[in-house]
Design a protein around this nucleic acid. Structure first.
Lengths: 134, 134
DNA sequence: CTGAATCCGCTTGGATACTG
DNA sequence: CAGTATCCAAGCGGATTCAG
């Protein structure tokens, strides 16, 4: 560790957002929307069919579900299997690549569980501080 | 591997997106925007001042930088220290809570580095498949 | 230097109706 | 059941301007 600015956490040194061409940008865009992580999660749970997914992910519209699934498919994270039957039957599943992403997301979900309470409280404290300042 | 649906990855069992009141929803919303993760990352790197941050995070506007910092502050992830001097001097830093989130994001950043190439290739393959189908 | 405030275009995303 | 297409409102977010 050298002197100057060096106290950089390990996790912060890995990507370079300064560079617009950096993978972090487009990858962050892919998962940085309202539904991708949720869909990834539920598909990872083994929910495979369109209707089931829509019922499981409360609040998602058909449009966004399809759109999100297509994006995930286009990026090699989920597979889409159309049985070409009548009535239609389509099944989605995670690819091996998608599963590795799921694994990488594990700590994040764990953090959410663990620290959600702390965030809520911090939010309350902040609101109080704002009120006092005003 | 058992037969029916039971093969649920460990990471997929942790949160319940079905429940609109589930922490996963609001937490996912907080980080699921264009800039939050980036700002969190750069602040984690020790970049503390407004101007520096804007220069480091290519493409971010003053408006979004301030807005994002305020949101992170309101959720207890970063601190804002105003030195109340002329000219103005303000410094941002991660809270301990913010650092734990950074830690939880480490595997995700690592995944991005590791599998970015695979995603790009998958994207190419998908495009080819689309072209052939058409 | 830090940042608040305004204007405004573009995208996001929901509701609905329609197809196979 | 699965999915597309269209319409349209809301808000995200950038550029600019003003202030302390």
């Amino acid at each position: 560790m050298s002197a100057t600015t060096s106290t950089v956490p390990a996790w912060a040194a890995r990507v370079d957002p300064c560079d617009a061409a950096c993978p972090s940008r487009e990858m962050l865009d892919l998962i940085g929307d309202r539904w991708s992580l949720l869909v990834l999660l539920v598909v990872g749970r083994g929910v495979r069919r369109n209707g089931e997914l829509k019922r499981h992910i409360g609040g998602i519209s058909q449009k966004m579900l399809t759109q999100t699934l297509r994006a995930l498919e286009a990026n090699g994270l989920v597979t889409r299997h159309d049985f070409a039957t009548v009535p239609p039957h389509v099944e989605y599943a995670l690819t091996p690549l998608g599963m590795t992403l799921g694994d990488a997301l594990g700590p994040l979900f764990h953090w959410i569980e663990t620290y959600h309470g702390a965030v809520v409280q911090a939010r309350g404290d902040y609101a109080v501080r704002q009120a006092e300042a005003a």
